[in-house]
Design a binder for these strands. Structure first.
Lengths: 236, 236
DNA sequence: CGCTGTCTGTGCGCTAACGCACATAGCGTA
DNA sequence: TACGCTATGTGCGTTAGCGCACAGACAGCG
């Protein structure tokens, strides 16, 4: 589009303190970003971060069955590869160029240098944040593609993991609110789980009887989130 | 539940370097977190961050019409109030105690002190990350509650904002992939928009004719995301 | 020019979830 | 023990979106 190119076409780069930008400029590599190019795959090690100028990139979540949903759009306002500085190194999503154009990229190490000055508390909190982001992204995908049944299982499991008992004090009304569905829908789904002897509940108390059974009925979302939390926050 | 209480019941606190934790402990306030308590409201200034130990807290996104969806669950593995150290101060979601219990809290300033040692690049990237998180959260809510029509409008607008033209080169097939819906659904929705004279398209090229018209048909999600990007990244 | 592949349009039966209305069923308290 | 509140169960018509099948329509290329 534009014959001239300038790192400052990317808003993040433009907003950097001039002294730091000047230091980075020699290392910023101008790159073509053709339609469909994959900047990174789920789980892959990042070697660069990208700063789009005239391109748009989608963060895509691809499920096991191949169905997918975009969870965010990144253009000249942003950067690709946040998991690098969040401390997680990788992310479960894929970045695909959605609209061809140009951008700049920077070797991972150089950006990391800027971060390593910061302390361990920062590092820990950023890793947690990345796990939280995963949970949100997966929620988005789950809302799109999975049945209420599956979502209820996922939700129960995620909640249980955060308690240390098999009981959950929670009315179906409240659960419905959390999942953003009708209360009657939860009644029905919970009824099925009870009939299958996976849970027992009465008046606002849910007891999980067969956890593996629940996991079997949950969608992949639960496992993805759990795995990512474990990976990012496996406290030694 | 547990008579004894210890900050290390929260995994994040437990994972902090002992020297730093020791420094923080006198300032960690042990708090009761009863069912339904609201830790923070959308847009409110945070005065504390919370580290749950035996409680569970939901991040809830509430829409203009009152419908809501949970976008994440936080328990003893995490922290509430990440927008504080992300640099955004506030967030569009609400934090509600979903399962009563206990936790610790820390005055905002004290945590911020740990961060302010870091540089401006960090600060900038974290603010961008918060904006991105908002986009993801809103995507989750949108997937749950809004019609394909509304979502298409939102998507077109978000994409356009990241280009500097009124054209988008994108087949309906691809858009369907992004939104996680059927291609035929996009055909139908796009057809309506074309009949309403809001857009024109042919064979992979979409031209927006009436941007305000599109905004009128989009759900609130577009505006929320845009506003939050502007707020967090209004480059002076 | 005509062929081919891609993109778009349309119809039809199916299903999950919705909205609404109301029936039952536990539990606490008077 | 009876009342009343809240939680749960159920039925029924409606709807958005799905899956599938196929029909046109346009672009580029030989």
């Amino acid at each position: 589009m534009d014959a001239s190119h300038d790192p400052k076409q990317n808003h993040l780069l433009a907003a950097m303190p001039p002294s730091i930008l000047k230091r980075l400029i020699p290392d910023l590599e101008f790159v073509d970003m053709p339609l469909g190019e994959v900047l990174y795959e789920p789980g892959a090690q990042l070697r660069h971060v990208y700063f789009p100028t005239t391109s748009i990139v989608s963060l895509l979540y691809v499920m096991a069955n191949g169905a997918s949903a975009e969870i965010a759009i990144v253009g000249n306002e942003g950067i690709l590869g946040i998991s690098l500085f969040m401390g997680g190194q990788t992310t479960p999503s894929r970045a695909v160029v959605q609209s061809a154009g140009f951008g700049y990229r920077l070797t991972a190490n150089l950006l990391l240098d800027e971060f390593n000055k910061a302390g361990p508390v920062l590092n820990l909190l950023l890793r947690y944040t990345q796990a939280l982001i995963t949970q949100m992204a997966q929620t988005a995908v789950c809302n799109r593609h999975h049945s209420l049944n599956q979502q209820l299982c996922r939700w129960l499991l995620l909640s249980l993991d955060r308690l240390s008992s098999n009981n959950l004090d929670m009315t179906q009304e409240l659960i419905a609110n959390m999942l953003g569905v009708r209360r009657e829908g939860v009644t029905e789904a919970a009824g099925k789980l009870q009939q299958a002897n996976l849970i027992h509940y009465s008046r606002g108390r849910i007891t999980v009887i067969d956890r593996p059974g629940l996991e079997a009925q949950a969608c992949e979302c639960y496992a993805v989130v759990k795995k990512e939390f474990d990976r990012l926050l496996h406290y030694p």
